[in-house]
């Protein structure tokens, strides 16, 4: 399943490293990534493929939530379909 992840929070060193390390540990492949700073806020969107993941979607979501809380980041993951439905015809 292809999903969109968004990571937001105060900018600092090592956010991409920590998030990508977690994704690697879950065996989730990053297909695309885009990152910017908006008004001092670190904002990253990732397109990921969970097909080979070693956990179910619900567990992945929880793992990301917990990681986000530890690192003071907001991390969410949603099916890519949600965004495609709204922005692609």
């Amino acid at each position: 399943m292809r999903a969109i992840m968004t990571v937001t929070g105060p900018d600092r060193v090592g956010i991409i490293a920590s998030v990508s390390t977690l994704l690697a540990s879950l065996n989730i492949n990053i297909l695309d990534l885009s990152q910017t700073i908006m008004g001092g806020l670190f904002t990253m969107t990732l397109l990921v493929d969970t097909a080979g993941a070693n956990r179910g979607f619900e567990e992945i979501r929880e793992a990301l939530n917990e990681h986000g809380e530890r690192e003071c980041l907001s991390i969410r993951i949603q099916r890519e379909d949600t965004f495609a439905a709204m922005h692609r015809i």
């Binding site: 968004t6 297909l31 910017t36 969107t45």
Partner: peptide
Amino acid sequence: MLNQSDILQ
């Protein structure tokens, strides 16, 4: 990938 601003919108 989808446009980042679309995603954020």
